[in-house]
Design a protein around this nucleic acid. Structure first.
Lengths: 125, 125
DNA sequence: TATCTGTTATATTCAAATTATAACACTTTA
DNA sequence: TAAAGTGTTATAATTTGAATATAACAGATA
């Protein structure tokens, strides 16, 4: 799995780990039932404290993405990814609606918004 | 003026004040040349330190929204439409960045986001 | 039993935000 | 001109969240 943590991201480390693992689950790089790296091994790999990894795992469990069993490890939960994706699409739709409102009120053209959109989405390389 | 500060917002107090005042300026509730509450009076009203209010005012001045004169007070600067537009563009940019994060994590393609974007923006044009 | 797993408790470090306090400087006005 | 408003500055302390270090504990499994 490809977990990269940066200090320049603005996000705390435990959230970066959370996001990386969510991505891996959505992309099916981590499959249902698959075991995640142990808190200690991932902590060693990333050269951080295992408590930070544990915190990320705890949040992921609370959100229903993984299930942790003492003595065994953490496993990807069976999940209806389509359902989650629908939720995320709605979330995105809400953001776009807000953008629409702001742009309308401030006399910002659709083209200008598209320009920003391209800038941010094509940073990806 | 209606300044509400919450601890649940995640934003530091000085930023919440900044945002409230920007809103008031955008909505013309605070008009050009109008005097803002003094740092001490607003601090008393919100039951916070005047230094926190000062920090908010300092940032607003740095951004060009108000002008502070020692011994007199802080005043709303003459409206600069470009400044306001820049501010709104920043707001939109923040939304797009959030969309980018959500879509990346949830494996939602750029095309799907564009689709939503078109739907919402072409509804009323 | 050894060695993996996760869990818990305690204390510490660190940075950013916020506060408390006191003194100082400028403006207005009674 | 003195008083009472403004803002300014400096210093130290506190608070909070994130992250760490360490040690001890508990369950799973070969």
């Amino acid at each position: 799995m490809n977990i990269i943590i940066t200090n320049s991201s603005g996000l705390p480390i435990f959230e970066q780990i959370e996001n990386s693992i969510k991505e891996a689950i959505f992309s099916n790089e981590l499959k249902e039932g698959e075991m995640l790296p142990s808190v200690r091994s991932l902590a060693n790999e990333l050269k951080i404290s295992f408590l930070t990894v544990k915190r990320a795992y705890d949040e992921l469990e609370k959100a229903g993405f993984i299930k942790t069993v003492q003595g065994k490890g953490s496993y990807v939960s069976p999940k209806n990814l389509n359902l989650i994706k629908e939720e995320k699409l709605k979330e995105i739709q809400n953001y776009i609606e807000k953008i629409y409102e702001v742009s309308k009120i401030s006399n910002i053209s659709k083209e200008e918004v598209i320009e920003l959109f391209k800038m941010i989405f094509e940073e990806e390389i």
